[in-house]
Amino acid sequence: MIPPHGLSLTQSLLERLGQSIVMGDYDRAPFPTEAEIGEVNGTSRTVTREAIKMLTAKGLLSARPRLGTKVEPVGHWNLLDPQVLRWLIKRPLTPTIILEFNYVRLAFEPVAARLAARQIGEAGDRTALLKIRQSLDMMILNHADRALSIRHDIEFHGNILEASGNPFYRQLRPLIDTALTLAIGMTSHAREPSESHNDHLNVFRAIEAGDGAGAEILMRSLITKAIAVIIEES
């Protein structure tokens, strides 16, 4: 196996096996043995074992004496791991999982919006405000290009997390990005773009005005509407 540029053999094998697991390749088939993995991928026992150890640490695999290695259910995976989140985007997920992701958004993003409004209002952080505004403008400007508009929609929410000034919220960005990527695929067709744009614009205006309470309420409303669509589509 020749690894992609910048990846070690172990990382390359980790990517290959991790994506296969998350995509469901082993949902109805046993996970291969170390010897089988090494033979198919041309990797040494050391590389193979290290990749399996890393997947086990991420909760995707478990190994038991005399029972071998098996794939764990989604509920056991480390869903805060950036690699696992990246792999998940490519997997057809049930509406239940997508809904659970968005309940996580509901728990964090409204408060992040409140903190961003306070941070920008008190510190006068125009750079953070400009980044939020630019992502909003690009989302609206590119409304005809669904993929590009979604990308800037995700950036808008991520920039608010960054603007909150809370380092824990900043580290939640991969999780929120994944939740948004999955949710928007289900919800974007159910609402007029102008309605969604107005909701995002109102959140921005509250943050710009330093209105923390208003920003929190508006962000909660925005996410609640998305959750309602997901429930309806389920």
Score class of each variant (00 low, 15 high):
27 D>C: 08
40 V>C: 02
10 T>D: 03
225 K>E: 15
33 T>Y: 03
28 R>A: 13
228 A>L: 12
189 H>G: 09
105 R>P: 07
43 T>W: 04
159 N>C: 00
59 G>K: 11
39 E>W: 01
226 A>K: 10
201 L>I: 11
46 T>F: 09
186 M>L: 15
230 I>A: 11
180 L>W: 00
229 V>Q: 10
128 A>F: 07
234 S>V: 01
120 I>A: 04
147 A>E: 15
62 S>F: 05
209 A>R: 15
47 V>D: 10
227 I>G: 08
53 K>V: 08
26 Y>N: 07
195 E>V: 14
73 P>N: 12
29 A>L: 13
3 P>K: 05
188 S>M: 12
192 E>C: 03
92 P>N: 11
109 E>P: 00
142 N>L: 14
50 E>M: 10
92 P>F: 07
207 I>T: 07
169 Y>C: 07
149 S>A: 15
157 H>N: 09
31 F>R: 08
228 A>W: 01
135 S>D: 07
197 H>N: 11
124 G>V: 10
172 L>W: 02
35 A>W: 02
157 H>T: 04
206 A>R: 14
171 Q>M: 12
172 L>T: 02
172 L>R: 02
89 I>R: 15
189 H>E: 15
122 E>P: 00
86 R>C: 03
2 I>F: 04
208 E>I: 03
103 Y>I: 13
126 R>W: 08
155 E>H: 04
19 Q>W: 01
234 S>C: 03
8 S>K: 03
90 K>E: 14
122 E>K: 12
227 I>E: 12
42 G>V: 12
81 D>F: 04
98 I>F: 01
104 V>G: 13
108 F>H: 11
49 R>M: 13
